[in-house]
Design a protein around this nucleic acid. Structure first.
Ligand code: NAD
Ligand code: NAD
Lengths: 256, 256
DNA sequence: CCGACTTTGTGCACACGTTCACAAGCGGTA
DNA sequence: TACCGCTTGTGAACGTGTGCACAAAGTCGG
């Protein structure tokens, strides 16, 4: 029912600093936000933006939780990580919440995106309107294929992978998206890193090796499907086992 | 050892007949595997498959962990959830491990996939070779656009969304992928569910409402980017570090 | 100004997941 | 056979995340 996070292992050397923190500054608080909560904050933000467009000005934790698919206690705890911006007895001001979540997620700055590998997936990403509209303008496209360089895709001309360093610097790219074949992914990753890109979203089904200061997130669709498959199998086993025992889920006797 | 598997294996054949086995068998164990571990098992499987192709027959937890980007203790614990198939002092037999992970993930059965919404993303998915090769044949494509119906994409002709029930039944679709615009996603989801599909992978940035017995996973790229953005911001705050007189970034007063 | 009602924010207990550390077990060697 | 070095498998400690339940804090009608 509720979806779970992909994973989020690797890298992220969160140096645990347990000394007594008396001055509660922003970075300490930011560090304290659980990774899982950050992911949900992004979802709340999307829902809230939709609400704002529909003219909603105030929303309760119960309503927002329903719309975001989480329970309300969790939602309130998540929001408490970023401060106390609600009004008891009333709820949250939508605009206020939006701006605070945006601040915490660092969306007050523009994050230019570069897509590397303009094949099937790269084309889709370059044409996708959902990135620019949410604060992530696609500023550069790269491919190794000479036939592609110069051709505009989604309004942006494709550059050759060899120009990655200069182009990324020029256009202040802060997020790199890897959509090349798996074999090329690590090499592309290395070039992105030497070009100064510190955030990478990887679609290739490989584990990337990066320095500690680089943040990598991966999207592996086959893994997603296998997780679904696992649940199908589990459910099938359950059904089979229950029939054999003559007892259904919840202990309901099927065939007395 | 949590449980003794003295039997000579069996496979997940539908005729599961527990002779004198403990009431809690395979399904109980399957249920006990943490969700996070399932995701990693899928990654191990991919790495192991690659190893097998390269002729590797045996691998230690240390090596496999390195290749999968996790620490070796976690890897061993993950593997212990599915049984004890290693040899102390030696490591794991690659082929054996592959087959056991496949069994646990339910990959011994074929899981036909239907993609709904053959736009930018849908085209990329339909053309993607990574699904069939990993046991997820794309068996059906759907769109609402009459101009698309009948046109083959990636070798499969697009059907009209109205035929979803019959086509899904015919081709035994078990996984539905939603790649339509957000506004259409819930409606498409409902139709998939009534067509009997119990697993859904959703690319549209909306929270889907489904019955309890349906498993949904979502892939939201904007959320991924916002998580990256959060880490950039956190890092920037750390670097810019010094909180001057209780005033942090953006002029937020830290200590009122 | 008060009291009834609503909703937030959070302390706490619990569940889940990760990591450590080491005994148990295996292959190789003398 | 007895020993040795290596690697697995896992109990137990630990850390993180979740959900409950309720006091605190606000609104609103009178
Ligand atoms: N197509 C999908 O729907 C899909 C889904 C999930 C994952 N993926 C993964 O995404 C990646 C791309 O998939 P695709 O279907 O778009 O592949 P594709 O073959 O259509 O495109 C790959 C592109 O990368 C370019 N390229 C190759 N080597 C390069 C290099 N060294 N530097 C820069 N560009 C290079 C190629 O010229 C090509 O244009 C693959 O790793 C694939 O496994 C794709
Ligand atoms: N393109 C990307 O790279 C990308 C990335 C992330 C998320 N997404 C999301 O994926 C979805 C699809 O994106 P896209 O770029 O492919 O959009 P698109 O507009 O190119 O394609 C959407 C397709 O869905 C079809 N469609 C519309 N309503 C339908 C219905 N009721 N039933 C069946 N088909 C219907 C349309 O005919 C069209 O072919 C969107 O929700 C988008 O937010 C896309």
């Amino acid at each position: 029912m509720v979806d779970r996070r992909g994973d989020g292992d690797e890298g992220v050397t969160t140096t645990s600093k347990p000394p007594a923190e008396s001055p509660v500054d922003v970075r300490e608080r930011a560090r304290a936000i659980p990774e899982a909560a950050v992911a949900r904050l992004a979802v709340y933000l999307r829902v809230l933006s939709g609400m704002a467009e529909q003219g909603v000005t105030t929303i309760s934790s119960e309503e927002l939780a329903g719309a975001a698919g989480v329970n309300s206690a969790k939602l309130r705890k998540d929001l408490s990580y970023i401060g106390s911006y609600g009004t008891r007895g009333v709820g949250y001001d939508v605009e206020v919440l939006v701006s605070h979540i945006e601040r915490i997620l660092g969306l007050t700055r523009k994050h230019s995106v570069a897509v590397v590998g303009i094949g099937n997936l790269g084309h889709a990403l370059a044409n996708y309107g959902g990135f620019p509209s949410r604060g992530f303008p696609v500023a550069a496209l790269f491919d190794i294929d000479p036939d592609l360089t110069g051709v505009p895709v989604g309004g942006i001309p494709v550059d050759h992978i060899d120009d990655i360093t200069t182009v990324c610097a020029e256009r202040e790219v802060s997020i790199g998206v890897i959509a090349t074949p798996p074999q090329a992914a690590q090499a592309v990753c290395d070039r992105l890193v030497s070009a100064g890109v510190q955030c990478i979203l990887n679609f290739a089904p490989v584990v990337l090796q990066v320095p500690d200061y680089v943040e990598v997130r991966k999207v592996d669709l086959a893994v997603e499907m296998q997780i679904l498959s696992f649940h199908v199998a589990r459910r099938a086993d359950e059904a089979a086992g229950d029939v054999v025992n003559g007892v259904g889920v919840d202990g309901v006797v099927i065939r007395p």
